[in-house]
Structures are given as structure tokens and as C-alpha cells.
Design a protein around this nucleic acid. Structure first.
Length: 200
DNA sequence: AGTGCGATTGACT
DNA sequence: GTCAATCGCACTA
């Protein structure tokens, strides 16, 4: 990497949730921890679009989901099933609630730190799945609302690596609006979560 | 104030 | 393949 994890500029982020979900494939999530930098390539995302009954913003702003209404490029972090933290990127203009769930990363930097955070040595299991990636990067509520277009504890950056073919499918683990094809993933990546049928 | 339910994971049959 | 863990939050009253 010749660049120094320069953050993505907000202006380059598509002002459209599905477009942003696709755009983020191949980009980098960078986490600064006391032990060092941890980062990975985004290989899987899901869009939770405007007026989406499956989206947390569907019934309006609440204390939990207010970060979804921030200008695009901010973190929305919440706890799923009382067990796993989920990292989302707000995706529309200020006041409009929508976001992109980051579902899996290909581990790039700080592998040893991730392995410690995850209590496993298996490379493929470090950040395959939204809860796992949050654990690997030690992401929790304290990062909710963070501007991901600025260097800080967590941000989004570019990546010089060529991006392979991007597939799309229905979203995973939801019941409402389950038929919509709003999941995006890198076809060739072994670091993508989900059943085989969803990764043709 | 009580209740039902997940944008998941890991353990287990 | 099935299933329990675990808890914050939105919703009902």
C-alpha cells in the first residue's frame, strides 16, 4: 500500500443506498486500536433503502437508529440478538434514514490482532459475517455516529487492489422485504458469508 | 411496566 | 441440519 489509508471523500460516495452498497465492495475498513492498525477489504454488503420495511429507519427516527439519518458516510452501530454488533454506513442525505450493512471483510492488516479479538486462528472466520467482523475490529456502540470519512478510531479508505466481479442476491436473515436483491458480494471471495445458494 | 422479537453466532444432534 | 443464548429496544397498555 503506497497510500496511507486516506479516507474516502464524502463527495465520492453515491447518494443512493443500493449504489453505495455496491460501491463499497472492494473498499477498505480501517480500525485504529492501541495495538495497531487493523483493516480489511469489504467483500459483502446489504442495502437497507428508503421506505424499506426491513430497515431500522422504517418507522422514523428513534434513539437507537438516529445515526441512520446522518449525512452519508457515518457509522450506525447496534447490537443484534443481544450478542453481535453490526456496522452500517449511513447512505442518504441528512434527515433521510437508510444505510448499508457491512457483512464481511477480507482480513488485510492486523491479522494477529483480529485473531486475538476473535479467539480463533482461522483466517476465513475472522471477519466472515457482520457480527464477526465487528468483533475482529472491536466495534461497539462507542463508535455509533462516527464520521467514517475522517481518520479516527474507524474509517473507510480506498484500496488499489483490482475489484473482481460483483454478484447480488436477496438479503440474509430477514423476513420482511425478503425478496429484494439488495445484497452485494465479491463472487470470487472465500470471505463472503451466507449459504452457497446465495453465492452462485 | 410488561412483552415479544430480532440485519447472528457457535455449539450440538 | 437444528437450536439456545442474550438483551436492548420498540410497541402496547
Amino acid at each position: 500500500m503506497k497510500h496511507g489509508h486516506e479516507p474516502l471523500a464524502r463527495e465520492e460516495l453515491p447518494v443512493d443506498t443500493a449504489a453505495l452498497a455496491r460501491y463499497l465492495i472492494g473498499k477498505r475498513v480501517v480500525r485504529k486500536l492501541p495495538e495497531g492498525i487493523v483493516s480489511g477489504r469489504v467483500v459483502e454488503t446489504e442495502a437497507y433503502v428508503i421506505d424499506d420495511a426491513a430497515g431500522h429507519a422504517y418507522r422514523g427516527m428513534t434513539p437507537r437508529n438516529r445515526s441512520l439519518f446522518l449525512e452519508r458516510g457515518h457509522a450506525y452501530v447496534y447490537l443484534a440478538y443481544g450478542v453481535s454488533w453490526m456496522l452500517n454506513v449511513s447512505s442518504e442525505t441528512e434527515g433521510v434514514g437508510a444505510g448499508v450493512l457491512i457483512r464481511a471483510l477480507e482480513p488485510i492488516e492486523g491479522i494477529a490482532i483480529m485473531a486475538t479479538n476473535r479467539a480463533t486462528e482461522r483466517r476465513r472466520d475472522l471477519a466472515r459475517g457482520p457480527g464477526r467482523l465487528a468483533e475482529a475490529l472491536r466495534i461497539d456502540r462507542s463508535l455509533d455516529g462516527l464520521d467514517l470519512t475522517r481518520k479516527g478510531p474507524l474509517w473507510l479508505a480506498g484500496d488499489d487492489h483490482e475489484v473482481g466481479e460483483i454478484g447480488n442476491s436477496v438479503r440474509i436473515g430477514i423476513s420482511r422485504e425478503a425478496e429484494r436483491s439488495l445484497r452485494f458480494y465479491l463472487r470470487a471471495s472465500p470471505y463472503v458469508s451466507g449459504a452457497r445458494s446465495l453465492n452462485p
